[in-house]
Amino acid sequence: MEIKDLKALIKIITETDVTEFEMENSEERIIIKRGPEKELVQVTAPISQAVPTAPPPPQGTVAISAPPVTESTEADDQYETINSPIVGTFYRRPSPEADAFADVGSIVDQGQTVCLVEAMKLFNEIEAEFKCKIIEILKEDAAPVEFGEPLFKVERL
């Protein structure tokens, strides 16, 4: 997002009663939190991209940060991933109206289904191979996935 757009976004948010705003696309993730005293803007972008530095907004404080490279690598070491055994389409829920098999923060038992991957009407129920906590869901619902591609970042319990 360009600086001017970010400024405009902050302006829009501050003119409302919204206290927390989050936006995510393929390139970046923007979180704006407002309290009575301060405002915190957090932009997380891929490391390769320049981290935008926004000028201070008219009021309050703004912090912009991207996770430092070293920290995220270390953090990732604690986690394991659940990978797709086949090429196909990733589904987080058994049917479009149903609840997701697992959400961020869910604790899943060994053998519990966490998602489906479909290829040519073969539905593969992906199960957790050990008891774990879902840290991050790495794919959008209904996204195509490759063989061996990580679907979930999990913490072994």
């Binding site: 055994p85 040519m120 009407k121 073969l122 539905f123 593969n124 129920e125 191979e129």
Partner: peptide, 21 residues
């Protein structure tokens, strides 16, 4: 991928499931 039709009307459907490591 695998519906079976007679005169463009569905006569059979398939749904496969896998349990794998």
């Amino acid at each position: 991928p695998n519906d079976i039709t007679l005169h463009e009307k569905k006569v059979a459907g398939l749904l496969n499931e896998m349990n794998s490591e």
